[in-house]
Structure formats: C-alpha cells, structure tokens
Simulated assay, not measured.
Amino acid sequence: MTDTSLDFPLSTEIAMLRQSWWLHDARWYQAVKSRFGQDVANELNAEVMKFVARRVATLYSRRHPVPSDPTPKEVGESLEALARLMFSSMVRLESAEFDDDGGTWESVVSEHFALKMLAASRSLEGYRCPCLELRAGWFEGLKVKADDEVVECMRDGAAACRFRACLK
C-alpha cells in the first residue's frame, strides 16, 4: 500500500516512525542521565517503558481481545504481536509458545539495537535494562497475570537475553 502524499510505502513510513520514537527515547535517556544522573535515568526509563508497553497492549487488545480465561497459546500470540508492533527489525526476538502444562513462555532476544547504541555512546556502563517493566506493561495491558524473570542478559555479558514468564 502506498501513501501518495509521501511517495513511499506505508510500511517504510511505519519503520521511520518506530526508528524516530526509539531515537527520541535514546536522546531522552541521555538528557536525563546528563542532567540528573544514571540512577534517575534508569528509574524514569523503566517507568516510561512500562507505561508505553501497557498503552500499546491496551490498544492492541481492543482490536484483538484476549479472552478472560485465555489459553497459553492465545497469550503467546498476543505477546509476539506486541513485540512486532514495538520493535520491528530493531530487536531480534524469538519465542517458544507457552507450554500447555505450566503456561510458561520463553523468549530470547539475540540482537537489541538499544544496547548497541548505548555502547556506541559510551553509556552502557550503569545502564539498567527496562525489559521486565516493559513486559509487565504488556501483561497488564492484556489483563493477564504472570510471573516474569530474566534468565540471562546481554547487558551482563550473556550471548542473548532470555526471559521466562509463567501464567498465574
């Protein structure tokens, strides 16, 4: 689909919008860090990421509702859709379906542009990833209860970030 007023495909426009939003996020983080310090930047970054993730999940669930008693597969499909909406090609995420026994969803992030950009700007030291807050926002927005944990993190030297969420 092409938007004739801009002369490029809508998907390109959406990709530009995502990149601009993430650029804003990076510049905002740097500004807060410079003015108020790393601890405040980390705290506010996590708070804002949770808010945005919850809002995206809420808006998504209005068009694609998750049943009141969803199956693990239904929750997993929604979470994967949310990741595609928010990250596109900027984050490489692979996930396994929720297993039917314990309702566990495992996901792996093998590339994350934010960590690359933080390293390039010499801001990686002291940075605290807001991953769990973001994921908590998704669960809240979908109205799904889950326990979520980081199994390993690239920020700590792992080859990939691994997460495990268990439905309650």
Results as ranks from 00 to 15, higher is better:
residue 96 A to I: 04
residue 104 T to H: 12
residue 112 H to K: 14
residue 98 F to H: 11
residue 100 D to M: 01
residue 119 A to P: 09
residue 107 S to Q: 10
residue 125 E to F: 02
residue 158 A to I: 01
residue 118 L to H: 14
residue 132 L to T: 08
residue 142 L to W: 01
residue 121 S to P: 03
residue 119 A to F: 14
residue 95 S to W: 08
residue 95 S to I: 06
residue 84 R to S: 03
residue 146 A to T: 06
residue 134 L to W: 09
residue 106 E to N: 03
residue 100 D to I: 05
residue 123 S to E: 07
residue 86 M to V: 08
residue 117 M to L: 13
residue 85 L to K: 00
residue 94 E to K: 10
residue 158 A to P: 12
residue 116 K to R: 15
residue 159 A to K: 13
residue 132 L to D: 06
residue 93 L to A: 06
residue 112 H to T: 01
residue 148 D to K: 10
residue 141 G to F: 01
residue 116 K to S: 11
residue 94 E to P: 10
residue 120 A to H: 12
residue 148 D to P: 04
residue 94 E to I: 02
residue 94 E to V: 05
residue 110 S to T: 14
residue 88 S to V: 00
residue 97 E to K: 03
residue 114 A to W: 12
residue 94 E to M: 06
residue 90 M to C: 00
residue 142 L to I: 03
residue 84 R to H: 07
residue 110 S to G: 02
residue 114 A to G: 11
residue 101 D to W: 12
residue 131 C to T: 02
residue 145 K to F: 00
residue 160 A to C: 14
residue 159 A to Y: 01
residue 84 R to A: 04
residue 126 G to T: 11
residue 151 V to E: 13
residue 148 D to M: 03
residue 157 G to E: 00
residue 156 D to S: 04
residue 115 L to V: 08
residue 89 S to F: 09
residue 151 V to R: 08
residue 129 C to S: 15
residue 140 E to R: 08
residue 137 G to K: 04
residue 106 E to I: 08
residue 149 E to L: 09
residue 129 C to W: 05
residue 95 S to G: 15
residue 117 M to Y: 12
residue 136 A to Y: 03
residue 93 L to E: 12
residue 91 V to C: 03
residue 111 E to S: 13
residue 128 R to Q: 14
residue 153 C to R: 15
residue 142 L to P: 06
residue 147 D to K: 13
residue 118 L to P: 13
residue 121 S to K: 12
residue 135 R to K: 07
residue 136 A to S: 03
residue 154 M to G: 07
residue 114 A to C: 11
residue 97 E to P: 14
residue 132 L to Y: 07
residue 93 L to R: 08
residue 113 F to N: 09
residue 160 A to W: 04
residue 152 E to A: 04
residue 139 F to G: 01
residue 137 G to S: 01
residue 86 M to H: 05
residue 156 D to I: 05
residue 152 E to W: 08
residue 145 K to T: 01
residue 108 V to S: 11
residue 138 W to D: 05
residue 83 A to W: 13
residue 102 G to A: 15
residue 105 W to C: 00
residue 120 A to F: 11
residue 113 F to Q: 15
residue 119 A to E: 15
residue 113 F to P: 05
residue 150 V to A: 09
residue 156 D to W: 10
residue 130 P to N: 09
residue 120 A to S: 14
residue 109 V to A: 15
residue 148 D to W: 05
residue 93 L to M: 07
